[in-house]
């Protein structure tokens, strides 16, 4: 903060009347927008109860195995079941923003697994790295999709989640790569390098034309390569996925 300088342009002051009126309007709107929606009376319908009971039993049976799989690590027999249950969860998440958040969480989970593998079972590190790269790819695609959304708040949400994920992942990967075997390091390095390259890239919500004010006077190509704003994965190594091996 050493280079903070006094205000060189006059600071406009908002009209008090406008300020008060807008606040009042926002508070009225907030009462509607911020109120959680009431759930429908789905479970109250009698004819659905037998079907729901059957589904519940099925869920309990599958859930038992899924719980056992939840703590499995890449390379373990139940890990495939864990991944399938996650895929189902993603497929059943219909809201785009919620799906992107879920994919971000799953990417975090893959990273946690990779960190754990690095300490406990380095031989499985290439598999864990591939799983992580796969998760990053899906997350990146989801964010890119939202960044093209018409709604500004959707774009904001995508950018916020992507920024938060990038910061966390770079820090963890930097700390992690020294612990990994040589066979897994190139993939990690490529992911980190991608992230570092991307950090200087322009957000997609900025105008495409000379948005960083670099003073470019030559026209851009008609179809410039789009800049990805999220973590890009490295190509997957040839290591088979656990489900394929088991």
């Amino acid at each position: 903060m050493s280079d903070r300088r006094p205000h060189m342009l006059e600071r406009p002051v908002i009209r008090e009347k406008f300020r008060t009126q807008l606040r009042s309007r926002l508070m009225t709107e907030a009462a509607v927008v911020l109120t959680p929606r009431r759930r429908t009376a789905f479970f109250a319908q009698l004819w659905l109860r037998p079907a729901l009971a059957a589904v519940l039993i099925g869920v309990l049976v599958v859930g038992g195995a899924t719980n056992a799989a939840a703590s499995s690590q890449p390379g373990e027999p139940l890990y495939g079941l864990k991944r399938v249950s996650e895929d189902v969860q993603v497929a059943l998440t219909f809201d785009d923003v919620a799906r992107m958040q879920l994919l971000s969480d799953l990417t975090d989970r893959r990273l946690d697994e990779l960190a754990k593998i690095a300490g406990e079972n380095p031989s499985a590190a290439p598999t864990a790295t591939a799983e992580y790269a796969d998760a990053v790819e899906r997350f990146a695609n989801a964010v890119d999709k939202l960044r093209d959304a018409d709604a500004a708040d959707t774009r904001d949400a995508a950018q916020a989640v992507a920024d938060a994920a990038r910061e966390k992942h770079i820090a963890v990967l930097d700390a992690l790569k020294e612990k990994l075997p040589d066979s897994a390091r190139p993939s990690i390095d490529r992911v980190i390098e991608r992230e570092n390259q991307r950090e200087g890239a322009a957000p997609a919500d900025q105008p495409k034309q000379n948005e960083d004010g670099q003073g470019r006077t030559t026209p851009r190509p008609a179809n410039p390569t789009p800049q990805r704003a999220t973590i890009r994965p490295t190509p997957r190594p040839a290591t088979p996925r656990p489900t394929e091996r088991n």
């Binding site: 807008l22 309007r25 709107e29 927008v33 904001d156 916020a160 989640v161």
Partner: peptide, 17 residues
Amino acid sequence: LVSDVFMRALRAIPRYE
């Protein structure tokens, strides 16, 4: 614009990280 910004913020704030 100020009005627009805070209306957008109100709608987006449940997803604030």
